[in-house]
Design a protein around this nucleic acid. Structure first.
Lengths: 124, 124
DNA sequence: CAGTATCCTGTTTGATACTG
DNA sequence: CAGTATCAAACAGGATACTG
């Protein structure tokens, strides 16, 4: 890894990297995207498959994803209502870098956790 | 991309992915790590090279990075004080997945921005 | 079923001033 | 130089209740 490449991150004073972190770095976004990687799902499917999420946060996060063009929302004029969510091409394209990050996590988080515990022990 | 791979993200109900998001998904962490990819830097170097960061946030973020073992902090017993920061091996290992994410951002953020603007126009 | 509407909480960030 | 201390603002997220 040549350090010059990190200009991708530092380039514009962090505007670009922060633009995406603002979008994906919240509690539920990546989880929803990863869940939708299975294919089209209804609101209730997502609610069931994502443990711990509230209706409010599921709605909010889906709206943001729709607004950003990562998820397509289709409403069927039926009673009772049916609403389906699918990843767009852009949404799908987020999966590989997200997996790269997840892979890093799997590999390094144990060490990080240990380091953090040792730091806490040394200091306050 | 096979959807089964997203179990890396969804696996434990999002615990692992959230463990890393909690660490790197704040306003300054990735920027500091990317800046330190140049090599060892002093506090004042970082302060100058990262536009907009306050002393407080630089200190706080560096302490977290040190605690997590991503950055090594060396204090020299001199007057005036000199403190140097370097990426550890773990810290360096974060660069490739971070670049993957940055690459995705460069490629897709324009489209996302347009999509968001269109959404705002359609709705409130 | 698929949401909205309110209220409430903790956390993150920033501004400013001060110090060994 | 390399921080610390204090205060205040902003925001994300959750609990609960209600609805077309």
């Amino acid at each position: 890894m040549e350090y010059e490449h990190t200009c991708l991150i530092r380039g514009d004073g962090g505007q670009t990297i922060r633009a995406i972190l603002d979008r994906i770095c919240n509690k539920w976004t990546l989880l929803i995207v990863a869940t939708l990687d299975q294919g089209t799902l209804r609101f209730s499917d997502l609610h069931q498959q994502i443990p711990g999420i509230s209706q409010r946060m599921l709605t909010l996060t889906l709206r943001h994803l729709e607004s950003d063009g990562l998820v397509a929302r289709t409403v069927y004029a039926e009673v009772p209502p049916r609403v389906e969510y699918t990843l767009t091409a852009t949404g799908k394209s987020l999966i590989p870098p997200a997996l790269a990050l997840a892979g890093w996590a799997i590999e390094h988080v144990p060490h990080i956790e240990a380091s953090r515990a040792a730091y806490q022990a040394r200091n306050g």
